[in-house]
């Protein structure tokens, strides 16, 4: 399995990263190196092995349905790169 430049471009789009041609080239080589190294996992038979998503086997961790005060809007908006009238403002979508 080897990653092409087009695939790297597609992955960059999924990740919302703008890459220069040089970066695409570099990441194509490096990702192929790393994924090539990862190929050794395929040698292991894991047909009957369950995946580990959590190392500590906790289950049913829940809280009661209680309302806590929300945060003051000035604090919520304090870090906003752009705001207007209590909203976070973003550039046009289309």
């Amino acid at each position: 399995m080897s990653l092409t430049k087009d695939e790297v471009q597609h992955v960059a789009m999924l990740a919302r990263l703008e890459l220069s041609d040089k970066e695409v080239e570099k990441y194509t080589t490096q990702l192929n190196d790393i994924l090539g190294y990862a190929q050794r996992l395929q040698a292991l038979d894991t047909a009957n092995v369950p995946p580990t998503a959590h190392v500590f086997p906790l289950q049913n961790v829940m809280r009661d349905d209680c309302v806590d005060p929300s945060m003051a809007r000035e604090k919520i908006l304090a870090n906003a790169p752009d705001e207007e009238d209590g909203f976070f403002r973003v550039p046009k979508i289309v």
Binding site: E84, G86, F87, R89, V90, P91, K92, I93, V94
Partner: peptide, 12 residues
């Protein structure tokens, strides 16, 4: 609506 808007504002 979305199309034609100059910018958008988010309320969470």
């Amino acid at each position: 609506n979305l199309a034609g808007a100059e910018y958008s504002m988010a309320d969470y």
